[in-house]
Amino acid sequence: MSVPVTIIGGYLGAGKTTLINRLLAGPLDRTLGVLINDFGAINVDAELIAAHEGETLTLTNGCVCCSIANDFGSALERLRDSNIDHVLVEASGAAVPSKVADIAQTWPGYRLAGTRVLVDATDWRRQLNDKYIGHLVRAQLHGAGLRLVTKLDLCDQPDRELDAIQREFGRAHPSASGQVEPGLIFGDDRGGALPSDVSSTRPALTSTVFESRVTLPHQPLLDVLSALANRLERIKGWVETERGPFVVQLAGHRVTMTPAAQAHNPANQLVLIGTNDAPHLASEPLRRLSS
């Protein structure tokens, strides 16, 4: 099966990195591969990182991020060997996302899910008139399957900006401080999965955080987590048992505990993600273990 690819584009400062960070930190129903082609650092929150190897980061939730530094091809080839459900490409600020999308349509093993272009509500009018980036920003916005408008909260008349963008370029959606429903990102371009559709066809995901400062008993903890494996979509975070600190992941209904390099504060923090009240119910046995 080919892996769907969503392109996240937009000029520098539009908020691509923030959006991707929020997405990675929130509840996810799939394992992401994130390819970052915006020159420079992978800016993923340190809290999310489980391992760092060369230009590749593995996150506590199983997602993988790598900086592609212009070699898209090798990054896509590498990802084919890992367990990824969906690829996000953070396009360079200089790129026209529809051109980046060609790569997803060309590279074997992948297919294009859609293109999302972020636009800064406070600055887009100036950008469009800038003699150096005007054409670029215009081409980015025209080429998007869906436009995500950021920084609306900093506008005097947010509705007016959103409206003007929709009228000039087409379908646009607010994305307050990078917060956006995952369905809005992962759906396809042609009207397919809009946010409302997504929430109606799929039970709502909720999450609960379990925190504790005491050292947990290793084997009983593993038993509890294994029992939760079928009732939750995801667990991510870390724990400390008598055997030391561990990174915990539940993905695909399998629990893994990987020894961590160092202890965290608090010693135990697990984000439990599931449908309806499952996360809340699941936190009960964990609380009992730590009392």
């Binding site: 091809g73 090798s74 060609d102 790569i103 349509q105 060309t106 590279w107 074997p108 093993g109």
Partner: peptide
């Protein structure tokens, strides 16, 4: 199976162009 029916690759002609070239070069 892998490269048939992809954009910028005309496998019938063995032709790789634009982004298809990147795949061949890889």
């Amino acid at each position: 199976a892998e490269a048939g029916n992809r954009k910028h690759i005309d496998l019938a002609k063995g032709h790789f162009f634009e982004t298809g070239l990147g795949y061949a070069i890889n």
